[in-house]
């Protein structure tokens, strides 16, 4: 089922800056969609359009069939939003903040308190819950924001750089939590980040955006095929026959460009049959980072 859809979504700011150009995408339930791009690419603008904070210049979008531009309050009931500009009250404690937002989302007092307590526990903030927010570190604020976004059990979660400012342990914990939410509860996660390694850990599908245009979208395999049509194979072997046309890159080290995995056993057999000794065969899997740079570089060449 499609939970988030965008059709030719465009946004031009009053100053004339085209922040988003003709973006078309659709997300399904339980999907963790990584929206990747450098600062100023249009990621935050997209989130603001999808949450009804900005009105699109043209095109349209919907959250579970609701247009966030015309019915933002209904869209907000279905979405949880974490962005760096959405802070909470410094003069209230962690739990007081959550109880307030729970009430603002229409939760009954008792439910709100219970939900807040369980989220605080899950995000390891129970010890700090009675401290004023003013004393929280950036990472703690970030985790509390995530708790706030999850209070009303949203169907769609918008996360704008959720792990910036988190230490590695907390980041891992948050990742695990997001993965579980998507996997077990079927929540759609729209994750904006420029931390590619982090995205690769949890996303099931990606969209690459630069200067307001979507460069490409798909699973990591799809993007890999698109960015690198041929695969690179690293072989450590002795006495490799010249007829195989491998590129030599050191003593007993070779690389081969192949189109398909099926070519590997064939290649290995030939080396062995020619009397060579194989020490290692390694199919190079380009990381998301490699793919990203290959695709953005490709775009620039066009």
């Amino acid at each position: 089922m499609e939970t988030v859809t965008m059709q030719a979504l465009s946004k031009t700011y009053p100053g004339g800056k085209e922040a988003l150009k003709q973006l078309s995408l659709s997300l399904g339930a339980g999907e963790v969609f990584g929206f990747l791009g450098p600062n100023g690419a249009g990621k935050t603008t997209t989130v603001k359009l999808l949450t009804g904070i900005l009105a699109p210049s043209s095109g349209c979008c919907s959250i579970m069939g609701i247009n966030p531009n015309t019915q933002p309050e209904k869209a907000h009931l279905l979405s949880g939003i974490v962005t760096e500009h959405a802070q909470m009250y410094d003069n209230l404690s962690g739990i007081e903040n959550l109880i307030f937002y729970a009430a603002a989302f229409g939760l009954a007092q008792k439910d709100g308190k219970q939900r807040a307590e369980s989220l605080l526990k899950e995000l390891e903030l129970t010890e700090a819950k009675d401290r004023k927010l003013a004393t929280y570190s950036t990472g703690m604020r970030q985790r509390l924001s995530l708790a706030r976004a999850l209070l009303h059990r949203p169907k769609v979660l918008f996360l704008d750089e959720p792990t910036s400012g988190l230490d590695p342990e907390s980041a891992q914990n948050v990742n695990q939590m997001i993965r579980n939410l998507a996997h077990k509860e079927g929540i759609t996660v729209f994750l904006c980040t420029h931390q590619l390694r982090y995205a690769q850990e949890i996303c099931t599908r990606y969209g690459l955006i630069e200067q307001g245009s979507l460069l490409s979208s798909g699973t990591i395999e799809e993007l890999r095929t698109q960015a690198f049509p041929s695969k690179s194979l690293q072989i450590q072997a002795s006495a490799v026959p010249e007829s195989l046309h491998l590129t030599k890159c050191g003593t007993n080290e070779f690389t081969a460009e192949i189109q398909d995995k099926q070519e590997i056993p064939h290649l290995v057999r030939k080396i062995v049959e020619a009397g060579g000794n194989i020490y290692s065969v390694n199919l190079v899997q380009p990381s998301l980072e490699d793919i990203y740079f290959a695709l953005t570089a490709g775009k620039k060449e066009d």
């Binding site: 949450t51 904070i53 933002p72 309050e73 209904k74 907000h76 009931l77 979405s79 939003i81 962005t83 500009h85 959405a86 802070q87 909470m88 009250y89 410094d90 937002y101 603002a104 989302f105 229409g106 706030r148």
Partner: peptide, 17 residues
């Protein structure tokens, strides 16, 4: 100024409310 307005706007309330 306290950067809490955006959070408030994300609540399921209309501007009028």
């Amino acid at each position: 100024e306290r950067h809490t307005l955006e959070t408030l706007l994300y609540c399921p309330l209309t501007l009028k409310q």
